[in-house]
């Protein structure tokens, strides 16, 4: 593969029928690059949770994907209400999701914790009334 690849996808807040489109595109790219299937699954599950979070909570967002020979780095940046208490948001079962989100099969307070479980690294920062940025890093060359 090329030394470094970059992609970005726009995510529309509130558009549930399209939620998962970006994650699906990322999955296709990783498959084409012959990334290990277990890593692909962890990557796309974490990305999809993040994408659903943007759709569920933010006004709009962008997913930036950087792939090199060492790692996959995915940054999910949104413009939205932000998270006042990140520690609280990381607790399993804590959610501020709307009933609409719950009807879609989400909103049980598992998204961020599940992202963390699947990622090798996760960094999260947020500013109230501005937005949230979550970055996940997946290592490509470590055998567990």
């Amino acid at each position: 593969m090329a030394e470094r690849m970059q992609f970005e996808y726009n995510v529309e807040g509130g558009n549930f029928s399209r939620a998962g489109f970006a994650s699906s595109e990322i999955k296709k790219i990783l498959k084409k690059l012959n990334v290990d299937i277990a890593i692909i699954k962890r990557t796309v599950v974490a990305t999809y949770e993040g994408e659903v979070n943007i759709v569920a909570h933010a006004y709009s967002g962008t997913i930036y994907v950087n792939i090199d020979t060492e790692q996959i780095r995915i940054r999910l940046k949104d413009e939205g209400p932000g998270i006042p208490d990140i520690d609280k948001a990381m607790e399993e079962g804590f959610s501020t999701a709307s009933s609409e989100v719950r009807e879609m099969g989400f909103g049980a307070g598992m998204g961020l914790p599940n992202m963390k479980k699947n990622a090798d690294e996760m960094h999260i920062s947020s500013e109230v009334d501005k937005g949230t940025e979550v970055e996940i890093v997946m290592y490509l060359n470590t055998k567990e």
């Binding site: 549930f16 999955k27 999809y48 879609m104 099969g105």
Partner: peptide, 15 residues
Amino acid sequence: GLANMQTIRTAEMSD
């Protein structure tokens, strides 16, 4: 019993 697009998306992501 949840029939919407996210059910199919979830299946896709989870293989």
